[in-house]
Design a protein around this nucleic acid. Structure first.
Lengths: 253, 253
DNA sequence: AAATACTATTTCGTATAGTATTTTGACGTC
DNA sequence: GACGTCAAAATACTATACGAAATAGTATTT
């Protein structure tokens, strides 16, 4: 028995190990520390994270429900592959169904708290512009995730909020981005255009474009312009679909 | 080629225990064998199902992701409560966002396989009419679940299909129904109207109404009438919302 | 080369023990 | 009686070891 020399005289642990494990494994998937489509060995993972199998099993079960990990009976777990072009398009079509509606609803019932939250989020996006290029990408995807999530929450509809969260769309986008980046690091000049596609839309220019579109949405919502908010959101999602689509195609060649 | 020496004899039920456990616990929630909001003791459940804790924990972790079970750190699992009126309305609003679209898409790309599946499902609904009243309710909810699920699948959009499945809307409706039924069994005459509300709409008359609405949707989809399919689906969901809504209110008084 | 047999690895489930935390309930104080 | 304290019981959580069964890989036979 590991005698556990002084587990630090801290207060009671707020969460449980299986929850922390869930977050850690999710982060490992996000960052390609576990590559898309790779096998996930429970023993190895337990060893790596310094925990026993039990919390790992629970975490993987939840991640499977999330669609981030696939389970094959008697063959074990593996991470899901990158989105195919079809899944990518399906995902954006789905977003087009619920997010414009969410923006419309938000405009109809926005209050001071919501306005403050939206303003704060836009502020964080603008400060992200000051980061270096590589950090900007991550910062912008995170801002984008928070911004869209925030609007579904302001809409007030639990089902809509949950179903949006479950798509993990920004996690998938980030994985696609990382895949494109690693293509670059390979000495494969033929994939040069992937660089263009992804960087072009995630770099400063695109960051400012995203901010501009987000600002239009925020403005419409905060002024109670429901139809305008709906239209702005629809345009924004369509716009990012158009931006990403060629890159997604390239990666799924 | 694997040897496969006829394991058919006693049939090793051991496919993957944790999956079977998941289904069993889900069924127990559906049937109120575990009441809404009740604590779920892992030891007791393991004992009851005759398995060890491991598969139980995995099943509960997945059910938590499904929103059928809630987990509180260091306090354990418990089933989620019945839908509140707000959650009920949110759920139907969500369905109104995605299902009419799914019907529309289905009409645009219906093929022979889809037509056959829709026809078969309608047939099963009609045979359900021959069952006794109590059996009819369950049969109709199951038909309803399959019918709507089928259409999201025919629409071809994975995100839409998955997000619809995850709502478990028919499971929640069935739990509401069972709750109403048990209200009846209590000697509480004041809840008499709950009986009316639920039975009125699930009995023969409502069954035939549901069939009629489903038939309109099927017909529009199979004939490629996309706008008609969308309208019919919208009308159907709105109609069932109107039917259920007073009952849901009564239960959440 | 194809089918079979054997071995190694891995998954899946069980059992058990130990720790951490909550819950319970008795007890005493105000 | 209301309220807080504190120990005991119950329960949740984690660790670990073991074994059965399936898969995967390798060797052998036909």
């Amino acid at each position: 028995m590991p005698r556990k020399v002084q587990p630090v005289a801290q207060g009671p642990r707020r969460s449980v190990l299986s929850d922390e494990t869930y977050d850690m494994v999710k982060a490992m998937i996000l960052t390609h520390e576990i590559a898309p489509g790779a096998k996930v060995n429970i023993d190895a993972l337990a060893l790596k994270l310094g925990v026993s199998q039990t919390p790992i099993r629970e975490a993987l079960a939840r991640l499977e429900s999330d669609g981030l990990i696939a389970k094959e009976a008697l063959k074990g777990y593996s991470t899901t592959k990158l989105l195919t072009v079809k899944q990518f398009n399906d995902l954006f079509q789905f977003r087009l169904l619920i997010e414009p509606w969410a923006a419309e609803q938000s405009a109809k019932q926005i209050d001071a708290v919501g306005i403050a939250a939206l303003n704060a989020e836009m502020q964080s996006a603008k400060t992200a512009l000051k980061l270096s290029e590589s950090e900007q990408v991550q910062a912008f995807i995170e801002h984008d995730a928070r911004f869209h999530s925030l609007i579904t929450r302001i809409s007030g509809n639990e089902s809509v909020t949950e179903s949006f969260e479950r798509t993990h769309c920004h996690l998938h986008l980030f994985r696609l981005f990382l895949a494109a980046q690693s293509h670059l690091l390979d000495d494969k000049p033929k994939d040069k255009f992937v660089e263009d596609l992804f960087y072009r839309y995630y770099q400063t220019g695109s960051g400012q474009l995203t901010i501009k579109e987000h600002e239009a949405i925020r403005s419409a919502i905060c002024s109670g312009d429901d139809k305008g908010a709906k239209a702005a959101m629809q345009k924004h999602i369509q716009s990012s679909l158009d931006r990403f689509s060629p890159a997604a195609k390239a990666l799924n060649k």
